[in-house]
Computed example of a mutant assay.
Amino acid sequence: MAGNLKAAELRRLLAQGEFILAPGIYDGISARVADSMGFPALYMTGYGATASMLGLPDAGLATYSDMVGRAEMICSVVKTPLIADADTGYGGLLNVQRTVRGYEAAGVAAIQIEDQEMPKKCGHTPGRRVVPAEEMVMKIRVAADARRHAETMIVARTDARTAHGLDEALRRARLYEEAGADVIFVESPETEAELERIGKEVSKPLLANMVEFGKTPRVEADRLKKWGFDIAIYPGLGFSVAAEAMREAWSYLKDKGTSAGIEVPQYRGMHELMGFPEVWDFEKRWVS
């Protein structure tokens, strides 16, 4: 059986010291746009995927089937390695095993699992509760063992900072490293000093969440790398600017009764982006 080639590529980039800047994608259009731009990895955001699929908040409402289906669709249209949000693993240890194998079969390079109680809540929002660290340790061990390909990466996220403080979050980070996580994700640090401390105290590859309108200061990639981070995700940037652009465009349409003269930027190469030239070539060959 062939290995996980996209995961192997992501591991190679990390091993050679390349900083992984990963935009947040959530549907087929965002995936194709980001894939065309040469990023080293993409990030499937749970917030964006839930919002675009269900029109609902990221509050544990999207199921395993919803999310693995979205991951499979995205992997089918991109060449870039995908880091994918898998919430809590969607249940207990047997659910975690199924989640890892399902995401891996979908083509995901790195699978993110967090230590929240179910139903989970979106990071940076109030009221998040975490399970005992020992429970998450077992999930990570199961996740690492469940992989059919050694290249597939497990990202362990802790949400302990907000309710329990940075010391507890870092204690958990060390436990999750020892349990076999490939990447550590300490969610919601609140200052640059906290980001620096995390970078000093975590030895495995480290992910920073540069979310829009969140608790964590948004820091440029060069400084994150200097502090010891290896990956930065931008989960909210794409859907927030897309939503605002739609609001502006439709406001213009409502006011003017036409789209002529609109100044909101429009993507001029949509047919090419979505693969229509391949359809037309196919029809020339096969359709009389």
Rank of each mutant, 00 (worst) to 15 (best):
Y103E: 01
A150V: 02
V130I: 11
A160Q: 03
K139R: 15
R171A: 08
E177C: 06
H124L: 13
P119K: 08
R128Q: 10
C122D: 14
R172D: 08
E117K: 15
T162F: 03
H149M: 06
A169Q: 05
G123V: 10
V130M: 05
R147F: 06
V100M: 01
R174A: 09
M153A: 07
R128K: 15
R161L: 00
D145A: 07
H164N: 04
T162L: 11
A173R: 11
P126R: 06
M136Q: 04
V137Q: 13
R147N: 02
A109L: 09
P119Q: 14
D167S: 14
A109V: 02
G165T: 08
D115Q: 07
H164P: 00
G127V: 01
K121D: 01
D115N: 14
V137H: 12
R174T: 05
A146Y: 05
C122S: 15
G165F: 08
G180Q: 06
L170Y: 10
A143G: 11
M136K: 00
I140M: 00
L170A: 06
M118S: 00
E151S: 07
V142P: 03
V130N: 03
E114G: 09
I111K: 06
R129Y: 01
T125I: 06
R101D: 09
E178K: 13
V137Y: 11
A105R: 12
T158A: 13
I113G: 12
A179L: 07
I113P: 11
A105W: 01
T162Y: 02
E151L: 02
G123E: 03
R147G: 09
G180E: 03
D145T: 07
L166G: 04
Y176K: 05
L170W: 09
E104H: 11
A105H: 06
L175Q: 08
A169R: 00
H149P: 01
R148E: 06
R171E: 10
A106I: 04
H124V: 12
Q112K: 09
T152R: 00
V131M: 15
R141Y: 08
K139L: 05
E178P: 01
A133S: 14
G165P: 10
V142M: 02
Y176F: 13
E114A: 05
C122M: 13
K120R: 14
A110P: 05
